[in-house]
Amino acid sequence: MRVFPVYAPKLIVKHARIFLTGVIWVKDLGRLEFEKGRFLLPRKSLPKVKQAILELNELIEAQN
């Protein structure tokens, strides 16, 4: 598990694309899981977490 002390979308996306499957922890967002290079949306999450995951997945799609 990698810990990101700040929310840096480009760096987080780079990590997810390299490792494809895993878990990261982002300060103020908490634990985020990714599989096959995409972030998974938890069943229950705060609106800011949901927005961050959608933003990260959009960045991943834009890079493909």
Rank of each mutant, 00 (worst) to 15 (best):
H15E: 04
K14Q: 13
L54H: 13
P47W: 08
I12V: 04
G37I: 06
N64C: 07
I60K: 03
D28W: 10
A16V: 15
G30L: 01
P42H: 07
L32Q: 00
F39A: 01
L32S: 01
E33M: 11
A62V: 11
E35K: 12
F4D: 01
K14I: 11
L11W: 07
K36E: 15
N57Q: 03
L54R: 14
K27I: 15
L11H: 08
M1D: 15
W25C: 09
R43N: 10
L46K: 15
K44M: 07
V23I: 13
D28Y: 11
P47M: 11
N64I: 12
L59H: 05
V49K: 11
G37D: 03
R31Y: 12
I60S: 05
R38L: 12
V49F: 06
V3T: 07
L46I: 12
K14P: 04
P9G: 03
Q51D: 08
K36R: 09
A8P: 01
K27V: 15
G30W: 02
T21G: 07
G37Q: 06
V6W: 13
A16T: 12
A8K: 08
E58V: 11
V23C: 06
L41G: 04
L20Y: 10
A62P: 06
A16L: 07
I53W: 03
E33G: 09
F4I: 03
L29R: 03
E55A: 09
A16E: 00
G30A: 03
F34G: 01
K44T: 09
L29H: 03
F34Q: 00
A52P: 01
E61W: 09
E61M: 09
I12D: 01
K27L: 15
V49H: 05
K36L: 11
W25V: 06
L46Q: 12
F19W: 13
L46R: 15
I12Y: 01
L56F: 03
K36V: 08
K50T: 08
E33C: 07
I60T: 06
P47C: 06
V23R: 13
L20T: 12
A16S: 09
I12C: 02
S45W: 09
G22S: 03
A62R: 11
I60W: 11
I12E: 00
F34Y: 05
R17F: 10
R17H: 09
L40K: 11
G30I: 00
L59C: 04
K48V: 07
E35G: 06
I60A: 06
L54C: 08
Q51C: 08
I53H: 02
V49D: 01
V49R: 05
L40W: 04
V26S: 02
L46N: 14
A8M: 13
K48E: 07
L20I: 13
Q63N: 09
V6Q: 09
E55I: 06
L11S: 12
L59E: 06
P5D: 15
L41A: 11
L41E: 11
F34L: 05
T21M: 11
Y7E: 02
L54V: 09
E61K: 11
I60L: 13
V49I: 11
S45I: 11
L32I: 12
F4A: 00
I12A: 01
E33W: 15
A8D: 10
L56V: 03
T21E: 13
F19V: 15
V3W: 15
G22D: 02
K50V: 08
A16C: 07
L40C: 06
E33T: 14
H15S: 03
E55H: 13
L56A: 00
F34V: 04
L41S: 10
L32M: 13
K36C: 08
R38T: 10
V13N: 02
K48I: 08
V49S: 04
K10S: 14
G37H: 04
F39Y: 04
V13F: 03
P42T: 05
V3R: 05
R31W: 05
I24G: 00
A52F: 05
V26Q: 01
L32V: 06
R31E: 15
A8G: 03
G30N: 02
N57A: 02
I18S: 12
Q63W: 13
R43W: 04
K44E: 07
A62E: 13
E55Q: 10
P5Q: 15
L41I: 12
K10Q: 13
K14L: 08
L56R: 01
V13R: 02
L20P: 04
L20F: 06
W25G: 03
P42D: 07
R17W: 06
M1Q: 15
A16N: 01
L59T: 05
L54F: 13
T21W: 09
K10H: 14
V49N: 03
E58R: 13
L40M: 09
E35A: 13
Q51H: 13
K50I: 07
P9C: 03
P9K: 05
P47D: 08
L11C: 09
G22M: 03
A52R: 08
R31C: 08
Q51V: 07
F4C: 03
K10T: 14
R38W: 13
I24L: 07
K27Y: 14
R31G: 03
P42E: 07
M1H: 15
V26E: 00
K50A: 05
E61P: 04
R43G: 08
G37A: 10
W25E: 13
G22P: 02
I18Q: 15
F39L: 02
P47T: 12
F19M: 11
Y7C: 03
F4S: 00
W25S: 04
Y7V: 02
L41K: 10
N57I: 02
V26L: 03
L46Y: 12
K50W: 06
T21P: 02
K44A: 07
P5I: 10
R38Q: 11
I60Y: 07
L41D: 08
K48N: 07
F34H: 04
F4P: 01
V23D: 07
N64Q: 12
E61F: 08
I60G: 04
K36W: 10
I53C: 06
A16F: 03
G30Y: 03
E33N: 15
L40V: 11
K50C: 05
K48F: 08
L40S: 07
K14H: 12
R38F: 14
L56D: 00
P47H: 12
P5M: 14
I12N: 00
L46D: 08
V49A: 05
V26R: 00
R43Q: 10
P5E: 15
L40G: 04
F19Y: 13
G30P: 00
E55S: 08
K36T: 10
A8W: 11
I24Y: 02
I60V: 09
L20R: 09
V49W: 03
I24M: 05
N64P: 11
R2C: 11
R31P: 04
H15Q: 04
P9I: 04
G37K: 04
L59W: 07
Y7H: 03
G37N: 05
A52I: 09
I60D: 03
I60F: 08
R31M: 08
V13W: 02
F19Q: 14
A8E: 10
Y7L: 03
I60H: 04
I53L: 05
I53D: 00
P47K: 15
L20A: 10
A16D: 00
A16G: 02
I24V: 08
K36M: 12
I12H: 02
L32N: 01
I24R: 00
K44P: 08
K36P: 04
E61Y: 12
L54I: 14
Q63L: 12
L54A: 11
L46F: 12
H15M: 04
R43C: 06
A62Q: 11
A16R: 00
Q63A: 13
K48W: 10
P5W: 15
H15C: 04
P5A: 08
E58L: 11
A62C: 09
E58H: 12
L11N: 06
R43Y: 07
L46V: 12
L29F: 10
L59Q: 06
E61L: 10
N57R: 03
L32W: 01
V6N: 07
I18F: 11
K48R: 12
Y7S: 02
K44N: 08
E61C: 05
P42I: 05
M1C: 13
K36G: 12
K14A: 14
V13A: 13
I53V: 13
L46C: 08
Y7K: 01
P42V: 04
L40H: 07
A62K: 10
Q63R: 04
G22T: 02
N64G: 12
K44L: 08
M1S: 14
S45Y: 09
V13Q: 04
L20G: 13
G22A: 03
L32T: 01
F39I: 03
Q63H: 11
E35P: 00
R43V: 10
S45P: 11
N57E: 03
V13D: 00
L54D: 09
G30E: 02
K36Y: 10
K10E: 13
E55Y: 13
R17K: 13
V23S: 07
P42L: 04
E35R: 11
L59P: 01
V23W: 10
F4L: 02
F39M: 03
Y7G: 02
R43M: 07
G37R: 04
P47V: 12
T21Q: 14
E35F: 09
L46T: 13
Y7D: 02
W25A: 04
P9M: 04
P42F: 05
L20M: 10
V3C: 12
L32A: 01
N57S: 02
W25I: 07
